[in-house]
């Protein structure tokens, strides 16, 4: 287990939360959402690491009890999560383009028609 990866992922997630909470420009908020996603992806893929293990690709003849490999399940989870992160980015940026055309500003202080 790699300590540096875990610390880095938590720092990324905390930074992402800070950007979403405090930055006013809409595209910066979208970037903050992406940073949170990348931090979580780093965390997931680091949970599957086994020190000194090989890649989990085997023929049936070479596979026996006691073969030591890296966990493949978190790799599949990370792949799915990367796809979802890309889709969130695409959708959020499309909404920002539409908002800019309607409100002529990308400042979250001005985009407050629904309140109270």
């Amino acid at each position: 287990m790699i300590i540096v990866n875990y610390i880095a992922s938590v720092v990324l997630i905390a930074l992402g939360f800070y950007v979403i909470v405090s930055k006013k420009h809409l595209i910066k908020i979208v970037i903050g959402m992406s940073i949170v996603d990348y931090g979580i992806n780093l965390f997931i893929v680091s949970t599957g690491f086994n020190e000194g293990g090989t890649a989990p690709i085997y023929k049936m003849s070479e596979f026996f009890r006691g073969s030591y490999f890296v966990d493949p399940v978190p790799q599949a989870l990370t792949l799915t999560s990367i796809v979802i992160g890309a889709c969130v980015d695409a959708m959020a940026l499309s909404l920002v383009i539409k908002l800019y055309k309607q409100y002529h500003t990308a400042d979250s202080d001005e985009i407050r028609r629904l309140r109270g």
Binding site: A90, L93, S94, I97, K98, K101, Q102
Partner: peptide, 19 residues
């Protein structure tokens, strides 16, 4: 399709949106 759509949206921002 997604890339082409975004490029299309960015291409014509001369028209204003009426709300």
């Amino acid at each position: 399709f997604l890339l082409l759509l975004m490029l299309y949206l960015l291409g014509d921002d001369d028209e204003e949106e009426e709300v």
